[in-house]
Design a protein around this nucleic acid. Sequence first.
DNA 1: TCAGTCCTCCAAAGATCTTTGGAAGACTAT
DNA 2: ATAGTCTTCCAAAGATCTTTGGAGGACTGA
Lengths: 224, 224
Amino acid sequence: MESDDRRNRLFDELAVVGKAFGSPKRLELVELLAQGERTVEALARAAGMGMSTVSAHLQVLKLANLVRTRREGTKVFYRLAGDDVAQLYAAMRSVARERSADVSQALEVYLDLPGSGEVGLVTRAELEQMLAAGEVTLLDVRPSEEYLAGHIPGARSAPLDTLGAEVDTLRETPAVVAYCRGSFCVMAHDAVRILGGAGVEARRLEDGMLEWRTAGLPVAAGAA
Amino acid sequence: MESDDRRNRLFDELAVVGKAFGSPKRLELVELLAQGERTVEALARAAGMGMSTVSAHLQVLKLANLVRTRREGTKVFYRLAGDDVAQLYAAMRSVARERSADVSQALEVYLDLPGSGEVGLVTRAELEQMLAAGEVTLLDVRPSEEYLAGHIPGARSAPLDTLGAEVDTLRETPAVVAYCRGSFCVMAHDAVRILGGAGVEARRLEDGMLEWRTAGLPVAAGAA
DNA sequence: TCAGTCCTCCAAAGATCTTTGGAAGACTAT
DNA sequence: ATAGTCTTCCAAAGATCTTTGGAGGACTGA
């Protein structure tokens, strides 16, 4: 048949998008890009890959039209092409988590969860209420780079590695909530642990920036 | 770092799902499976691939936990593991379509659209209303195999290749609406064309079974 | 213009995928 | 049992991806 050709071409094009999501390294880059735009070099550093490798992967993503670029001087900034891309990534994660015992197990090992009962979770709705009432100190514990590229309005940047120094400013606040990249990210877990160890009772947002963004909620950029 | 290992394992597992969607042939199988369960042999026939090839691809999908199997005598029926899988596939399609000029162009060529203005479209909401009022003849123009595996309640099976013989029964009906697999499927386009040529004015549901199913609407199975 | 920075492109080696035909396995019916 | 049907497994060839180091482009600042 002649229409077979055309149908094949259609699925070929579709598979370009699928393939783009089919490499662990690229998924890691997408996860980073979901936090905000970054230069090639920053991505390479954050993901621990060589520049050539990162560049090659970014070309694949670009070919699939999942990312866009912006040049500034000698640097090239990459960002996701749209919220729908972040949504697709989030959807894939949730299917993987739902469907695959391996994924949820790898996730548990990665997040180092103490089995089942986890206390101190705050839902997105609860957080919005607390923010509106002004009765929460919201900590963005991602690297400051990512905070600058976009954060939850009202959050204060408190990167994990300098968190210890800020403990004293948190003793008198009514409620401390930490968040990071998203439900696959350990930083907020670690932050709560660190703060707890220093005697500050903190809770954790149930997910993170990725989910906030894909929910279409407002995002602030730049310094506080 | 030691946590790098764990993170890598997580993304490796995630990529298994991505990879599963990264081959045109597998996407074609997913598209077919979104219509309902099928045997390996039926899939091979419908997609024009060898049995070994289909079986191999199905193993990949199974490894990613995107499909499930059911045995009946010597036959093995494959089906999508859940509605979330169909939703993910639909989301991927829509991102691809939105983001990539190549995809929408391949789609236009495939669907043989006359450019822009297309008349005679019925939305899902309109169809539901018409069905409730009983003032529509709804034709499922997919192969009868797929109709049996699941169709819109109230639809009548009218496969494309036998549609010509049924034209006479359609002359007096108030409204004729045709649907097929989904927005990437030509059969309903063809049906409307065939009917129009025979003097029966028919319209087309804007999408198809895939979208109906992922919208969580009821599905009927078996003969009318 | 020249040196320096950041990024992309190139080529090649190595790894992984895809496709095939045929053997082997699971099951049914006789 | 035995033959027959449907499916999976296997091995090998060919195709495609990934990773690298280094060359080459784009841009800046002196």
